[in-house]
Structures are given as structure tokens and as C-alpha cells.
């Protein structure tokens, strides 16, 4: 309850939460909220590139589809992509971090050196390279993002595990007959939950951005899908005359990422007050 009160005083975090909730609702109810839900896959060549109006609040794109509908429908794929990428990365990273931190020795060293290699290369570049290596599709983009995001989880979980392993309660657990897997998963993992949740939230925003970049470069969702990054890519030939074509999908990316980041920042402030606003 104290945490809840502390959180509610943090205005940016509350704003972030509001945005995240809004995006989630939009994603859940997308087909009902979009005025032209079928515009994801239809084209109306007679009404190409119309500026925003009462009928088409965000205007229409190069083949006459309602951009407002496509932005709303796009929330769904953006969230699905980032959620599966981040949870996949979390599953890999948390497991490896726990194992490396608790068991140590050469296996732990090996895991952490591999993690270092991944962290040394910017995630976007590595993801681009991997996505290019597989055949370009939404699935391979997601796989590439997952394979490049787990080290972030592995790092923090490793550090937490090392810290907790030396703590007296883990020692005491050993003395009273807790097996190693029980100590790791039932006692150390819950203690490391807060930094994992923070990283998860920030990772959501970050992954939406990276996924949009991949979409923009044609390595994400294939053309008819209502993908934000893809929409911006398609708008390039029509700039600067049709400003609305790129602006509204771009704003959608901006707002969603902002929301997740504000929320993640706020959560981190609660978890670790010493790091207040230090990004």
C-alpha cells in the first residue's frame, strides 16, 4: 500500500501507466475501435492520400486505407511482437543468469562471457544481422530480437544471484536441507523479481522501437499488415506532401515507447530509490 501511494505521487510514472493501459485497451478492442477494421487488407484507389478529415481522422495512405484504423490495428501486432520477444528473452536470460550466478565455475563464466559478447555489439545491429541471416519475415524478426535481448536479463539476474548467493539466508537454507534447485528457483528468483519486472517494462518499449526499425527496413511484417514501422517506410515516397502518412504511425510508436519507459522508470524508482531519475 505504501508502494502504491508512492507510485501515485510519481506523476510521470502514472502518465506512463495511463498510456500503457490505453495502448493495451486499444490492442484488445482493436477491431471494434477501428472505424474501418477491414482496411488492414483492402485498398480504395479512389480515395488515395486524403488529408485528415472527420471521415478519416488521420487521413488515408497511398492505397486509400484509413490510417487511423491501421494505427489502432497496429497496436495489436506491436504488443504481440514485443510481448513475445521480451518474455522469450526473459525466459532465456533469467534461466542463464540464475545458473551462471548460482553454480558459477566454468559454466557460469562461459555464459557470462557470451553475454558480454552480445552486450558489446549494439542490439539493433546484431538483430539486423540476424534477421537478415534468416529469411526476412515477422517470425525471424521476432527471433532475432529475442536472441539479442536476453543478455540484458542475464546480466541483472546474474548480479542479483551472486549477491543473494552470498547472503546469509541462502546459507541458512543450505544448512537446513534445501536442495540447490529449490534455493535457486523458490528463494533467489523471487528476491530478484523487482529488477526483472523493471527490465521487462523498459524492454517492452525498447522492443517496440526496435521492431518498428526492423519493419521500416523491410525485415518485419510483410506489406499488407498494419505495421507502424512498415507504414512509415511506405510513406517515404510521398513525403513531404502527405505529412499525415508518416506522422500518425510515428506518433503511435513514440507514445507507446514513452508510456512503457515512463512506467519502467517509475517502477525502478520504487524498487531502487537510490537510482532516482538517473538515466
Amino acid at each position: 500500500m505504501l508502494l502504491l501511494r508512492k507510485f501515485s505521487k510519481d506523476l510521470p510514472a502514472v502518465l506512463g501507466l495511463a498510456i500503457v493501459v490505453l495502448v493495451l485497451v486499444a490492442a484488445l478492442l482493436a477491431p471494434h475501435l477501428a472505424p474501418y477494421p477491414l482496411d488492414a487488407y483492402e485498398s480504395h484507389l479512389t480515395r488515395r492520400l486524403k488529408p485528415p478529415s472527420a471521415e478519416y481522422p488521420f487521413g488515408t495512405d497511398n492505397i486509400g486505407r484509413d490510417i487511423f484504423s491501421r494505427v489502432i490495428l497496429g497496436t495489436r501486432s506491436a504488443l504481440i511482437v514485443s510481448l513475445s520477444v521480451v518474455s522469450g528473452a526473459m525466459a532465456i536470460g533469467v534461466t542463464l543468469g540464475l545458473v551462471a550466478g548460482f553454480y558459477g565455475r566454468w559454466a557460469g563464466e562461459a555464459i557470462m562471457r557470451v553475454t558480454d559478447v552480445f552486450l558489446a555489439v549494439p542490439q539493433l545491429i546484431l538483430a539486423l544481422a540476424l534477421a537478415q541471416l534468416f529469411s526476412p519475415s515477422l517470425e525471424s524478426a521476432m527471433l532475432a530480437l529475442t536472441l539479442t535481448y536476453w543478455p540484458f536479463f542475464a546480466r541483472i539476474v546474474y548480479a542479483e544471484t551472486r549477491r543473494l548467493k552470498a547472503s546469509l539466508f541462502v546459507d541458512a537454507l543450505q544448512c537446513i536441507g534445501a536442495s540447490a534447485p529449490r534455493i535457486v528457483f523458490a528463494h533467489i528468483l523471487p528476491n530478484a523479481a523487482s529488477p526483472i519486472i523493471v527490465r521487462l517494462t523498459i524492454g517492452m518499449g525498447f522492443t517496440i522501437l526496435t521492431a518498428a526499425v526492423l519493419g521500416f527496413l523491410g525485415m518485419g511484417a510483410p506489406p499488407p499488415s498494419p505495421d507502424w514501422g512498415l507504414a512509415i517506410a511506405e510513406s517515404r515516397q510521398h513525403l513531404p506532401d502527405t505529412w499525415w502518412f508518416a506522422t500518425f504511425p510515428g506518433l503511435a510508436i513514440f507514445l507507446t515507447v514513452l508510456g512503457f519507459n515512463l512506467l519502467g522508470d517509475g517502477l525502478r524508482d520504487i524498487v531502487d530509490p537510490r537510482l532516482r531519475r538517473s538515466r
Partner: peptide, 15 residues
């Protein structure tokens, strides 16, 4: 049975 040294640190704080 085992009684650990430091009662401040010997219990898991999250449970």
C-alpha cells in the same frame, strides 16, 4: 536442526 548466526539476515525477506 540449525540455528544460524545472524537473525537479521537469515530469513528470506520476500516471504
Amino acid at each position: 536442526g540449525f540455528i544460524p548466526q545472524d537473525p537479521y539476515l537469515a530469513l528470506n525477506p520476500v516471504f
